[in-house]
Design a protein around this nucleic acid. Structure first.
Lengths: 344, 344
DNA sequence: CTGTTAGCGCTTTCAG
DNA sequence: CTGAAAGCGCTAACAG
């Protein structure tokens, strides 16, 4: 009884109230310019008076396209992805689109289920941070007419658009500065598993910087850790100190860097006086760390925003089939704080 | 040409392929138990063979209800809300529901626009962390049949369900422990603007703890800061030190606490030896801080999960109208780390 | 158990 | 410029 009367007001109700036909109501909504001003006003008045709210499901069904885009991320709790979501949500918003958020929990089974849902929803597009390199299941979605763009983990982009951040450049920037800061000292890299593309990229960037400087690759001492946590950072440094005393450390994420600094400090070394440290990611913690962390900042929000921009562009192009897929890659930037001061 | 043929396969196609009627296809999807096993098998085979993907828009339209729930948060980038989203997404997932995420950016205009979208989408329900106390616009949504539940900022819950965390209890827990830890020393509270309900609640909890201990309210020295940042925490402590030297500090969020500790340390005071500090929120930074922070932990993920549980329960009840609205409030917990060790 | 049938609310030709 | 009419793909009576 309390909500049995809901959605009593459809376009027909408006039409009657305004004394026009159903079609005219639809027209004043979708193509107001072809409706005479007088009628339009009348209709609009009726709509507000009766509190009309269009039914997207019906419109979508008829129109064959809806105003939803899917967004699949591995872990919404990770600030990197949260920022991407923020950017995507803002841009979607701006265009009147909604975002269907899926947290794949880095689990292929979940991801699959979610892609299935997005398929049933017939979202106009989908932004995906894919878990595995197996993009076959994405094909299914695409067949349904869902435009999709891969984010961040774009390895093996067979076809379609993608948006990502240049991690090789990030590694290079960090290492370049480290080389310049220490000239001659020992460089160490604390990295996550090389099997993770990002880690591999950052590593390659480091190597490239070395090469640029005419240095031998062996000048870089590498420590690979399982999980990229503060704890691992500490352990890596502990292990490292038994071998060498570096003058510069590049940690491939901020947690590792923080752990490294902590252990360094514990060992009586001071940062940046004795050893210069650069992290990666520019998390909030980097800024307020005991020793404010110099780090590689990534345009995360911008990445999310760009991704939906690309999707919308692709969607709009559905008629004139002249859309060219493209890969958009953003550049990271080194932000200077205390752990690795700017050179002058 | 590349996607002109999409969704050629509807239930009719399946029906033909399986040699049954449209209705039977629909039935094997929605009420498989009433279909003879043989026919069911046949139909299912056809569905997988033809790669059938049901069209939710059509189903929703016909059925008058969809499998979407809206979720409006002020800032997805805030770990507190990110955790709520995580919980909500997981639970929605489990039930085959999708989440339409809206980032209101703490801006009423955005929120309004988003509520409008959710209305047009006719989401089955909506979870909202409302920006203002003005819940009138929520009424509009509810009139559309959207069940809604308020999260966290539940002040003035007029009607409907809500899920929140007991901040008064949080304040009380922290303060109780502080009192016990210092017996007799000066207590200080570093709080955000009292106009924020959460801050007010935590403050009231502190007062309650004082009262419990038979202490006068004046024993609590309060410092109110504008924004709850690390910087503000430092400033508050600096200001404080010119007046008193406390033995215990309760900061109403972790950032403030971290700032406080930093300033304390700078001033030559050590934590927890000279002054015991408790934060609030249990952010990731709390655990890995220079002095690991004791803090009030909130069951954020659980909150998100519970919220969609409640929504789904309310939705299922649409027929037998016996749903009773309820407010579910979770209890926070004091987690002990170094800045305020457990007493024994 | 299976099939026939009538729409859900809206968009979109196509005529007036 | 406005209206009449035909469905979009699917669900849910209701008959067989």
């Amino acid at each position: 009884m309390t909500d049995r009367n809901r959605q009593a007001v459809g376009q027909v109700a408006i039409a009657q109230a305004a004394g026009v036909s159903l079609a005219t109501v639809s027209n004043t909504i979708n193509r107001p310019e072809i409706v005479a001003e007088a009628t339009r006003k009348k209709v609009q008045a009726a709509m507000t008076r009766l509190n009309f709210v269009p039914n997207e499901a019906a419109a979508s069904l008829r129109r064959g396209a809806n105003r939803l885009v899917g967004l699949v991320v591995p872990d919404i709790t990770n600030p990197f992805y949260a920022a991407i979501v923020e950017g995507a949500a803002a841009e979607a918003d701006r265009h009147g689109y909604g975002i269907v958020l899926c947290n794949s929990q880095d689990d292929p089974a979940h991801e699959l289920k979610q892609l299935k849902l997005l398929g049933e929803l017939r979202t106009a597009g989908a932004l995906i941070v894919p878990i595995t390199a197996d993009h076959s299941r994405l094909a299914r979605l695409r067949e349904l007419g869902t435009r999709l763009i891969l984010i961040d983990r774009t390895a093996a982009v067979q076809e379609g658009c993608s948006a990502s951040i240049d991690d090789v450049l990030g590694g290079r920037l960090a290492t370049q500065h480290l080389i310049a800061s220490t000239n001659g000292g020992d460089l160490v890299l604390i990295n996550g598993p090389r099997s993770i593309p990002q880690c591999d990229d950052r590593h390659r960037g480091a190597l490239a910087a070395l090469a640029d400087a005419g240095m031998d690759a062996e000048r870089l001492h590498e420590f690979e850790v399982e999980d990229m946590t503060v704890r691992s950072g500490r352990q890596a440094v502990k292990k490292m100190l038994s071998t060498i005393t570096p003058t510069a450390i590049f940690a491939t994420n901020d947690q590792l860097a923080l752990g490294a600094i902590k252990e360094l400090t514990t060992a009586g070394l001071s940062v940046p006086e004795d050893v210069v440290v650069i992290g990666y990611g520019d998390l909030a913690i980097a800024e307020n760390a005991p020793v404010p962390l110099s780090t590689i900042e990534q345009p995360k929000v911008e990445l999310g925003r760009a991704a939906v921009e690309m999707i919308l562009a692709e969607i709009r192009d559905k008629d004139h089939n002249e859309h060219r897929h493209s890969a958009r890659v953003f550049q990271p930037r080194l932000v200077f704080r205390e752990s690795a001061p700017r050179l002058n």
